[in-house]
Every structure is written in structure tokens, then in C-alpha cells.
Amino acid sequence: MTETTSPEQLAASAPAHLPATASAGAPYRAAGPAETSPVVLRLERVGVKYGHRSAVDNVCMDIYKNRITALIGPSGCGKSSLLRCLNRMNDLIPEAAVSGRIYLDGVDINSDAVDPVQVRRHVGMVFQKPNPFPMSVKDNIAFGPKRLGLGSRGRINEIVEGALRAATLWEEVADKLDQPGTALSGGQQQRLCIARVLAVNPEIILMDEPCSSLDPIATLKIEDLMRELVREYTIVIVTHNMQQAARVSDYTAFMLASEHGLHGQVIEYGATKEIFTNPRDKRTEDYITGRFG
């Protein structure tokens, strides 16, 4: 697995144009006329089922390049399930079945011709609980590039430093590179996990409640980091914290499960400012203003 497929190669293996059907679906196009950034991920009628339980139902969304898109909503509304579709992490759960289509740069990532390993190579993920490998700080970062054959030892040392700098962790760990990653503080561990993803240079970074186990100061650091990173990357974040979505994201999708935590759906999707100041749907308004329930 040393050779990696570029998005262009991925695109070459399937029809490169985006299907016109979804782009006409106005409700799911979050951007106003001012948005100049291209669509990098297009979700068409995406659903997730765990056995007979439907967790996510009929989600259509466009996700824009170099923007932060937040998925918010109450527990059990299917935010994380939806996020895990975007890099085929749901493949790892035997009873999970994903329906609908997800186009990454125009390629259906669920098609038979696409290897999920290649999808994850382009769509990295940061998890709720910091999960550094039980190795040194340096090896945590070097693991991905080494296994993917991204370069010689010298090149990998450069990648390690670059990734740690990009994750604003370098200053704090420059003299601790040989110490175990698990010995860092929670916030540092999470930035280590972000640096680990940056080291393999994906296009999109998915973040599943990345700050839920962190204190407010560590949380702010991660949020600042996200604003930095979005210049180079596209970020999709799941968060419980509405203030966080309001602070960091450009676009927000509000999700809600219909009943008994089934059929999670996107109720409203739009520019974050719009969603928080002028929601169109009553349910969004109730949730945002804390009148939910």
C-alpha cells in the first residue's frame, strides 16, 4: 500500500461530473450566491441503518472546500453516524448499511471500484476521545507517512515537524519527541491526533466531537487551530456544543431524530450566521434557543 491514489486518479475511475439532480435540490445547497468555493463532498439521499434500526435517513448536503461545516443536534440524532459515512468508517461495523450516494470530488466513494482505505487516505478523522498510539510523540506522527510510504527517514522527520507545527503543538513538544504520546495532556493529545492526520495530508478532516473531553482552554486552542487549518483543508465537525458551532463553523446543519432516536434527518442546513440568527424551521429555533424538548 505504498502507492496512493490522488483525487484525480480517483476521479478518473468514475464519471467526473457531478450529477445535476442534486445541484438542483435547492434546500440542501447551503451557500448563498456569494459562495465561490467549490463543492468537495456531495451527499445524496444518504441513509444509515444498523440492522433494522435506521439511524440516518435521506440526507442531502453539499460540503464546500476550505470551509468548516458543523453538524449539530441532540444526542442520538445521527450526527456521528452521518460523519462516519464520509470516510467509510461505518464499513467497520458489520451490521451497518449505508445507502444513497456520497461524491468526493465527483467520485462515488461507495462504489465497488473505490477502496475504503483510499477514501480514508483523503478523508482523515479525529475522534471524540484522544486516541494517540502507544508510541512516542514522534512515532505517532510518523506512523501514517511510514506505513503509506510517503518518504525516506529524513523526509519523514520533516513531515513530523511540519505536522506538529501546523497543529500548533511543536513549541510544546519539541523537547519531548521521544516521550510517549499518552503522557501529554488531554488537549495536547488531541492536537497530536490532529497532527497525525495532517501528516498524511488529507483533503478533508472529519472531527467527531473533538473537544468533548477537553477543558475550555484546550477547547479554545483546538478551535483556533481549526480556523488556521481551514485555509488548507476542509473540515466537517460534529459537536454537542452550539456555541462551538457558532464560533468556528461557516455552515451548520441541524439534525434531529424523528422519534425514539430513529431516522435522523437534516432539518435545516445553511450558513452558520443564518442558522443561529434567523432559523427558518421552528425546531431549529427551539433547539438553538434552548427551548428544545
Binding site: M1, T4, N87, M89, L92, V117, Q118, V119, R120, R121, H122, G124, M125, F127, N131, P132, F133, F143, G144, R147, L148, C193, R196, V197, V200, P202
Partner: peptide, 9 residues
């Protein structure tokens, strides 16, 4: 999952 999410096989 941390490893798989990097695109490691």
C-alpha cells in the same frame, strides 16, 4: 480506528 482513519490498511 485512529490508524484506519489515516488510510492505513
Amino acid at each position: 480506528e485512529g490508524s484506519l482513519a489515516l488510510g492505513v490498511s
